[in-house]
Amino acid sequence: MKNSIRIERAVKRISQQELAEAVGVSRQTIYAIENDKFIPSTELALKLSAYFGKTVNELFSLD
């Protein structure tokens, strides 16, 4: 599973901490997702997509 969270975060010019606070998780969680160490739940994926104004399919894709 690939994702474009890091790119979207760079576009918005926000830190991992700011994104983590916005979606209600820890900074470690954002790091783990960006580095493909952890696949988020549907709930968190939806929160991230809502935050970036993208669909889940645009943020996450299969390898």
């Binding site: 209600g24 820890s26 470690q28 969680t29 783990a32 952890f38 739940s41």
Partner: peptide
């Protein structure tokens, strides 16, 4: 609980 207990912590 950790300070921020979320799904990754549970994992």
């Amino acid at each position: 609980r950790e300070k921020t207990e979320d799904e990754f912590t549970l994992h």
